[in-house]
């Protein structure tokens, strides 16, 4: 059992992909696309509500990884979480730049996603893995090399911050109501 646990922590694959990206091996980029392109797309689509915008974010994020492989450090988190966070930030920026979208529900979601980008890195990593990448807290813990309890506590802190933001949004009308 112990051996399996030790073996199932995935870091070598991220390190291998990173090494090949650093040295300009195109096939590594193709593998990243195949493994994480769907996730990046889903993240961007959730935020932008647009398939076209999501396709653009996929291109942006993976081209960035290719041009700036040193921006990702496999010792400091998983590639899955890193790509998800980058896609999310780019998507939030897009929505912020576009701004012409009406509709209260959409604006609410956009505000909450903007709040998500401001969470501390450790909380963002776990939230991305659990919410966007569909990992259990145990998988999150293994992927990031942290104890399960830490993963749970970080998930709680992250989601509570967002829930607090909902209860107390930066909208004067709602504030008066409370």
């Amino acid at each position: 059992m112990d051996r399996r646990t030790a073996h199932s922590s995935t870091p070598p694959r991220d390190e291998d992909l990173h090494r090949r990206l650093v040295y300009g091996d195109e096939s590594a980029l193709g593998e990243v696309y195949d493994a994480f392109g769907g996730l990046v797309h889903a993240v961007a689509r959730t935020v932008t509500r647009s398939t076209n915008a999501a396709e653009d974010v996929v291109q942006e994020v993976l081209t960035h990884l290719w041009a700036r492989p040193y921006a990702f450090d496999p010792a400091r988190g998983s590639l899955r979480a890193w790509l998800s966070m980058l896609a999310h930030r780019r998507a939030v920026d897009r929505v912020r730049d576009a701004e012409h979208e009406p509709g209260a529900a959409l604006a609410d979601a956009a505000l909450l996603h903007a709040a998500l980008t401001e969470l501390p890195l450790a909380q963002r990593q776990v939230l991305h893995l659990a919410y966007f990448a569909g990992r259990t807290y145990r998988q999150v813990a293994v992927e990031l090399g942290i104890p399960e309890d830490t993963a749970k506590i970080r998930l709680r802190a992250a989601l509570r911050s967002l829930a607090d933001r909902l209860a107390d949004p930066p909208d004067p009308a709602v504030e008066r109501g409370i």
Binding site: T46, A105, L106, L112, L162
Partner: peptide, 11 residues
């Protein structure tokens, strides 16, 4: 917390 997740999901 569920409401927060629901809002993240969007419509």
């Amino acid at each position: 917390l569920r409401e927060a997740v629901h809002r993240l999901d969007g419509p």
